[in-house]
């Protein structure tokens, strides 16, 4: 997940977590397998109707209400996390609420163009940001980075913190469960297992790469002292034209955030319509603008009340780590089991 990729090394710290990333990645493949079963079923293409057929309308509305909470939490964490990065590295004196407004305005514009166009935007977002990983390739070749920074590779003590790290990785792999809601817009559902496996493999590779690079760059002892290690790493790079390319890269990274938040905005709008029993009515611009406004106000409030006050223990972040892990565990499981039961009866 976007923001988690930035802060991940802080939660892992020890070199043996390399294995944990791989193991959790393989476990995540099981979740993906269960999800793909859903995608291949006939219910997926029907969207809302499909869910109603399986769970019944009341249950779907209940799930939608719960989903709104999860969506809110996720968006709040990623957008506020990103704004914090911006404030730390680009504009130390920026008023975060303004920044929030600007980003949400862009997302509103993106989302107002409709789901199909928003989903298509991912290709652009991916192409505009994926090359950033290549820049990190330079870091392991600095003179102060040595292979010894990766040792020892096996754990000699296993504490609560290590468990937390595993939970964090699992949560960082979460996200594909939201694809279930986008199923009607996919046209190649037969091959989805293949695509999702490729995606999962790429995520494992990306996390491994970032983590190993940050271990080599900081060493496992200094890594814990940094708040945003990946950004510090990027910042250390210097291009001949611009001395601080981190500013450009952080801005480019906005592509992903805009994409994710726009999707979640649309999901939020859809979920609200379901809970208000209006899913059969025509969508309206006013309704959408209203839900965006609600979004903005809620995020601003949580920014003022919770995020800014957080020092060491950020309650929102903690919650999101748990929430991400839970949804990624239970959503595929729930769908899988209910599909099996439906198939039997």
């Amino acid at each position: 997940m976007l923001y988690f990729a930035i802060i991940m090394p802080v939660f892992l710290i020890y070199p043996y977590m390399i294995w944990m990333i791989i193991i959790v990645g393989i476990l995540s493949q099981i979740s993906i397998f269960m999800l793909s079963k859903w995608f291949n079923s006939m219910y997926a293409s029907k969207g809302y109707e499909g869910f109603v057929e399986i769970f019944g309308e009341r249950m779907v509305r209940l799930l939608a209400i719960i989903g709104i909470g999860f969506i809110f939490l996720k968006v709040i964490v990623i957008i506020l996390g990103y704004i914090e990065v911006v404030r730390h590295f680009i504009f130390p004196s920026v008023n975060t609420n303004w920044m929030l407004l600007f980003i949400l305005l862009i997302c509103w514009y993106v989302a107002s163009l409709g789901m199909a166009i928003t989903i298509r935007f991912i290709v652009i977002a991916f192409l505009c940001t994926a090359w950033m990983l290549l820049l990190l390739l330079k870091l392991p070749f600095h003179s102060f980075a040595s292979i010894h920074d990766l040792f020892p590779l096996i754990p000699y003590e296993w504490t609560m913190k290590s468990w937390k790290g595993v939970l964090f990785i699992w949560s960082a792999f979460s996200g594909p469960e939201y694809l279930v809601l986008l199923a009607p817009w996919f046209n190649k559902r037969e091959k989805i297992l293949k695509y999702m496996t490729i995606g999962n493999a790429f995520t494992i590779f990306e996390y491994l790469f970032i983590f190993i690079a940050s271990l080599l760059f900081f060493g496992s002892h200094y890594l814990g002292e940094n708040k945003l290690p990946v950004m510090e790493m990027i910042r250390y790079l210097q291009s001949p034209v611009f001395e601080r390319i981190d500013m450009i890269l952080i801005s480019v990274y906005l592509f992903h955030f805009v994409f994710a938040i726009s999707i979640f905005l649309l999901l939020f709008y859809g979920a609200t319509r379901i809970t208000l029993k209006k899913s059969k009515d025509q969508t309206t611009r006013l309704g959408f603008a209203l839900s965006c406004a609600i979004f903005f106000i809620c995020i601003m409030m949580s920014n003022e009340l919770l995020w800014k006050k957080a020092t060491n223990q950020n309650i929102l972040l903690e919650l999101e780590i748990w929430a991400g892990a839970l949804t990624y565990l239970f959503v595929p499981l729930l769908l899988f089991i209910s599909l099996k039961r439906k198939g039997r009866s």
Binding site: I106, V110, F121, I124
Partner: peptide, 9 residues
């Protein structure tokens, strides 16, 4: 970059 994002969108 916000402008570029808008442009791409």
């Amino acid at each position: 970059f916000m402008g570029i994002i808008l442009l791409f969108v």
